[in-house]
Amino acid sequence: MNLTLKVWRQSGPSDAGRMVTYRVEDVSPDMSFLEMLDVLNERLILEGDDPIAFDHDCREGICGMCGMVINGVAHGEQRATTTCQLHMRHFEDDATITIEPWRAAPFPVVKDLVVDRSAFDRIIQAGGFVSVPAGSAPDAHSIPVRKEDADAAFDAATCIGCGACVAACPNGSASLFTAAKITHLSLVPQGQPERLSRAKAMVDQMDAEGFGGCTNTGECTAVCPKGIPLDAIAQMNSDYLKANSK
């Protein structure tokens, strides 16, 4: 496969950044999207050029490090897929592909396609935990949890914090991420004591970081590589409302 890439290049946080066009030839359809970028980077290094910086770690779709907006869609158009698990066979030969970083003020660009997602860490620090000595994993069924609650909590807990929800949201809202982290604790018994204070602290931190508000467009859940459902946000809204009406 031969491809034309239009990639966002930004040398540092203070650089304005611009789109740069590259030609990549002899790409195997079996390569992942990141491997395709590796090939381009090897060539750029040999040519004495600056390689394109992008985040990646496990390349198994479970760590949440990779992520870029590919042809206007976070993680590309393949549903429920991280960028590392997106393969070149989903692209046409001779296609032109635009690649951009997550764009949100709370996610400042570090370099090229790498953004600083510490804002997510601070939202977790604000309340995304349980203040009980958890110890080792408890015996199964020692604390009864309804099957529906366990399933919904697990769905929410699959969030890998990649930030695609923020990237896709027309408002730059972090509601799906924050809601997933709130929901995964608020549906199980261990999360009950701090349920309302957690929702309040995390939503307030989300606002303080400068993320936008949710307008229920559903863009986030559509691009989420883990398919976090939109009703996590309803759960967050409900908990936040209760926390404020006490």
Partner: peptide
């Protein structure tokens, strides 16, 4: 975004 494609609704 230079390119942005809606995926929902």
């Amino acid at each position: 975004y230079v390119a942005k494609k809606s995926q929902a609704n």
